[in-house]
């Protein structure tokens, strides 16, 4: 009884995998980040006095990525962020962060990320390398990326979703945070992107 069920299951898995294989090969494709439906988030977290955190988002950004589950090392991504869309739910603080004290958004209204490579570190995870341009200065960064899931959506499209984390040292981009205290020199970024296959 028991072995029978098991073998059935194994057969099922094998069959499923076999069916999945040609499909996944066809998935090496360009994806457009779903900015329109806002199924993508760029969040940041920075220390407040060392006692707590300020959380915020960049609401407006666009981008594309290419992804092939069979050849993850060929993955790439390009994202363009509207810096002025920064939102920490407090107008005076947002105005201050966007002023020339920090991000100087009138001078540098966009930030960009262009990937240069991807290194797989295991099943569905890896390190995305690339150049981040922020505050007019470009620095190489790495983003720890994890594949969340992917497949057909209920509306006739096909999607892949990832989350990523990285930590930026703001002085590398010429942003002076010394007035905010020693704990505010770095900012943690958390990204969720859902791409719609083109």
């Amino acid at each position: 009884m028991f072995p029978k069920t098991l073998s059935k299951t194994v057969t099922g898995v094998t069959l499923g995998a076999a069916m999945l294989l040609p499909m996944t090969q066809a998935n090496a494709a360009e994806y457009q980040i779903d900015s329109q439906g806002q199924h993508a988030f760029i969040q940041f977290k920075i220390s407040h006095l060392g006692y707590s955190y300020v959380l915020g988002t960049f609401d407006d950004f666009t981008g594309t990525f290419s992804y092939d589950p069979e050849a993850p090392e060929e993955a790439s991504a390009n994202v363009k962020v509207d810096v002025t869309s920064l939102d920490t739910a407090h107008a005076e603080r947002d105005k201050h962060i966007l002023s020339d004290d920090f991000l100087n958004a009138s001078e540098y209204p966009t930030a960009t990320f262009e990937s240069t490579g991807f290194e797989s570190t295991g099943e569905g995870e890896g390190i995305l390398k690339g150049n981040l341009t922020l505050h007019g200065q470009t620095q190489p960064i790495t983003i720890d990326v994890e594949h969340i899931g992917g497949g057909d959506d209920p509306w006739g499209g096909y999607r892949q979703g990832f989350e990523g984390e990285t930590t930026l040292t703001l002085s590398n981009y010429g942003i002076d945070t010394s007035k905010l205290g020693p704990t505010a020199s770095t900012v943690d970024m958390y990204l969720v992107v859902e791409g719609l296959r083109q």
């Binding site: 407090h90 107008a91 005076e92 947002d94």
Partner: peptide, 8 residues
């Protein structure tokens, strides 16, 4: 309008 820009 500065202070109330985000609803506060």
């Amino acid at each position: 309008l500065i202070s109330t820009a985000e609803g506060q």
